[in-house]
Simulated assay, not measured.
Amino acid sequence: MSLLEVERLCVDYAGVHALHQVSANIPEKNVVSIIGANGAGKSTLLKTIAGVVKPNAGALRFEGEDITALKPHERLDRGIALCPEGRRLFPELTVYENIRMGAYRVRDRARFRSRLDFLHAVFPRVAERGNQVAASLSGGEQQMVAIARALMSHPRLLMLDEPTLGLAPKLIHEVARLVRTINSEGITVVIVEQNAKLALKISDHAYVLETGAVVLEGKSSDLLASDKVQHAYLGGDSGRQSADTGHL
């Protein structure tokens, strides 16, 4: 069953196609990765789903409801959360205050406390750093806080934009483990990652974007074994880009 349906989405920036006729189905309780080179439109796709960017054409349906015209906070209320690239924490606020910002639409105190307890169990280091200002944390710790903040709204769909960017290898594996832990709680995850091999290893299904268009899609395991993807994104013949469009 599809939780989110993206239909022929188009986004233009100053006459340039950032997204062109992008369609995708995000199955419920799956991990879906979006891979592609810099400038392929990956982050734009997530921002459009979150409502931060308005499409020029196309439609978005969440649980069968057309959400194309909904504002970002209305999408958040329906269970769509975005953890943006670069973490975007409030550096002068404490870890706890940053996390609490993720629950600004939550009015039920019992629900807030339950969610906070869950996050402290999943992110013990975040719990330990609760009274520290965000600016004092390492890059890896800041990323954990950013993910925890996004989870405070109790999303059905969590979108992670470049969660391992700038992290040490050990912390990259920690983020990968967290993605699977989050998904095991029944949360659908869409992950945009420059580390294509990692993204394909931890996801069930994947889409490849090039210059704003979907050029490949299929099971992540199939894409991981594909010569096309190996050559274009996983370290083989780095100068070559996949030119074929279709399913694997």
Rank of each mutant, 00 (worst) to 15 (best):
Q143W: 02
A134V: 03
H173Y: 11
R88H: 14
L224E: 05
G36A: 08
Q142T: 15
A57D: 06
T245I: 15
R129Q: 15
G236A: 15
E162M: 07
S184H: 11
A40C: 10
A40M: 12
E210L: 09
T48V: 12
G102S: 13
I172Y: 00
V126M: 05
L158P: 02
G15P: 13
Q230H: 12
L224F: 02
I34Y: 07
Y104I: 13
I26Q: 01
V133T: 12
G236P: 03
V189T: 10
R177I: 00
S242V: 15
L93A: 11
T44H: 03
V145N: 14
N56G: 12
F112T: 05
G64K: 03
H20R: 15
L223E: 01
G41S: 14
V189A: 14
A40T: 04
T181K: 14
E63A: 12
E162I: 01
R240D: 08
R78M: 04
V22E: 05
L45E: 03
H231G: 06
V189C: 12
S136A: 15
G51V: 02
T68K: 00
R75G: 02
A57P: 03
L216E: 04
G58A: 04
Q21H: 15
L82I: 05
L19K: 09
N25G: 09
L119F: 10
G239H: 04
H205P: 01
T181S: 13
L157V: 05
M159I: 02
T68Q: 04
L198C: 08
R180E: 03
N30F: 15
S153K: 08
H154F: 02
P27R: 13
D244T: 09
L160K: 00
P163K: 07
G102Q: 08
V145R: 12
G166R: 06
V133R: 08
H205M: 13
L198M: 15
L158N: 06
P72Q: 05
V190D: 00
P163Q: 06
V189L: 11
D244E: 13
N195W: 03
I191K: 00
E141D: 04
S226H: 07
H73E: 15
A206E: 10
A134P: 09
S153C: 15
E185D: 02
N25Y: 07
Q21T: 15
A150L: 06
K29A: 13
P27K: 12
R8S: 12
D117A: 14
L216T: 01
K47T: 00
Y104L: 09
M152Q: 07
T44A: 03
Y233A: 11
A18C: 08
A135C: 07
R109L: 14
L216I: 05
V106K: 13
F62V: 01
A57H: 06
A243D: 07
A206S: 15
V189S: 07
A69L: 11
A40Q: 11
I80K: 01
L151N: 10
D117R: 10
G41A: 13
D244R: 08
S114F: 02
I80H: 02
D77V: 06
D12N: 14
R125F: 05
R125T: 00
R149L: 03
L116N: 04
R111A: 14
G246Q: 08
E97T: 09
H154Y: 10
M1W: 09
I182Q: 07
Q230E: 13
E128G: 08
R129T: 08
K219V: 00
R111N: 00
K170G: 02
L116R: 13
I49H: 01
L60I: 00
R8K: 14
I34P: 06
A150C: 06
A24W: 10
A232C: 02
